[in-house]
Computed example of a mutant assay.
Amino acid sequence: MVTRRDMAGWVGGSRRPNAAGRWPGERLGLAQHGPTSMAGWGRRILAVVIDWSIALLISNLWFEGHPLVTLGFYILMQVVLLGLLGTTVGKRIAGIQVVRVGGAMAGPVRVLIRTALWCLVVTPFMVDPDGRGVHDRVAGTVQIRM
């Protein structure tokens, strides 16, 4: 039988400590502020807008703005630049780097997985308490400030 006490405990939430940690990325061993801290949403959105604009510009100049060509150039930029340098033009301007959890370079295979999941559009919005999307969790990556 469910009692008032049981309901009060459930309504009040769990008694376990905050699963997210005190700041985004604490559970991953990231700093609270400055370099190597989690990149905020503003930086991430700015990076996506810049990268997409570059892909759109290329597509408009040489391929009459075909949407699949735009997507293809965006994916190509993500895989090549993130796989080799850990950052894209947009992420560099926004001061973001994509690394594996622990700080090592992500590498082409992880970046390919991350990009494929990112292109499903929904996965970046399904975030964990640290603010990492499904695409970053599956690939084992994190976006940090440079």
Rank of each mutant, 00 (worst) to 15 (best):
V2L: 13
R4P: 04
R5K: 14
R5I: 09
D6V: 06
M7L: 15
M7Q: 14
M7P: 04
M7A: 15
A8M: 06
W10I: 15
V11A: 15
V11D: 09
G13P: 07
S14M: 12
S14I: 12
R16M: 11
P17Y: 11
N18M: 09
N18V: 13
G21K: 06
G25C: 07
E26N: 06
E26C: 03
R27Q: 12
L28I: 08
L30D: 10
L30E: 12
L30Q: 11
A31M: 09
Q32W: 09
G34C: 09
G34A: 10
S37M: 06
S37A: 15
S37E: 07
A39R: 04
G40A: 06
R43H: 06
R44F: 08
I45P: 08
I45W: 14
L46A: 09
A47V: 04
V48C: 13
V49M: 08
D51S: 06
I54V: 13
A55D: 03
L57N: 12
S59P: 09
L61N: 03
F63N: 00
E64H: 08
E64V: 02
E64K: 10
P67L: 02
T70N: 05
L71Q: 01
G72R: 01
Y74K: 05
I75Q: 05
L76W: 13
L84H: 13
L84P: 03
L85P: 04
G86L: 07
G86D: 04
T87I: 14
T87Q: 05
T88E: 03
K91V: 06
R92T: 15
A94V: 13
G95I: 02
Q97V: 13
Q97L: 10
V99H: 04
R100T: 05
V101K: 03
V101E: 01
G103N: 01
A106W: 00
V109N: 08
I113V: 15
A116L: 14
A116E: 06
C119N: 02
L120N: 13
L120M: 15
V121Y: 06
V122Q: 00
T123H: 06
P124C: 07
P124R: 00
F125V: 01
D128H: 07
D130V: 00
D130M: 02
G131C: 11
G133R: 00
V134P: 05
H135G: 11
H135P: 07
D136G: 09
R137D: 02
A139W: 03
G140I: 07
V142W: 01
V142L: 07
Q143D: 15
M146W: 13
